[in-house]
């Protein structure tokens, strides 16, 4: 009974978070782009930007409180249960099958995967 309730909670949260995450992604992309020109802008603009950054962190915090956790990717061993390989890089700098770059962050709630992390994986040269 308890397990069933927990699974239902995870499913509902995963469903909601799955719909919210693309909004969070776009907000982050916008902030990353603006951060690069931040220095050349006025004080007012920088204050405004840091305000938007706080809203981003607040939303992230709400999801975290609901149990939505980011999936560890960079430096981890590639795991298709959590990661989705979108590109490989032949290299000797890392062990084969190591995630060398996180392209899109993945999330999960409890044992339920909301979306896998999209990653770049090291392969033998």
């Amino acid at each position: 009974m308890e397990r069933e309730r927990s699974e239902t909670y995870d499913r509902v949260v995963a469903d909601l978070a799955g719909k919210l995450l693309p909004v969070l992604d776009n907000l982050k992309r916008g902030l990353d782009t603006e951060a690069s020109i931040e220095a050349s802008e006025s004080d007012e603009f920088r204050h405004f930007l840091s305000g938007v950054d706080l809203i981003y962190k607040q939303l992230y915090g709400v999801l975290d409180a609901l149990g939505v956790k980011a999936i560890l990717a960079e430096g981890e061993k590639f795991d298709p249960h959590l990661h989705e390989a979108v590109v490989t890089e032949p290299t000797d700098d890392y062990e084969p099958d190591t995630v060398i770059q996180e392209i899109v962050r993945g999330f999960r709630v409890g044992n339920k995967l909301i979306r896998p992390a999209l990653v770049k994986v090291a392969v033998k040269q």
């Binding site: 298709p80 249960h81 990661h83 989705e84 390989a85 979108v86 590109v87 896998p116």
Partner: peptide
């Protein structure tokens, strides 16, 4: 591996 999980590791 079968299905979505197999597809996720196809590139590697």
């Amino acid at each position: 591996l079968v299905g979505q999980i197999a597809k996720r590791q196809a590139v590697t």
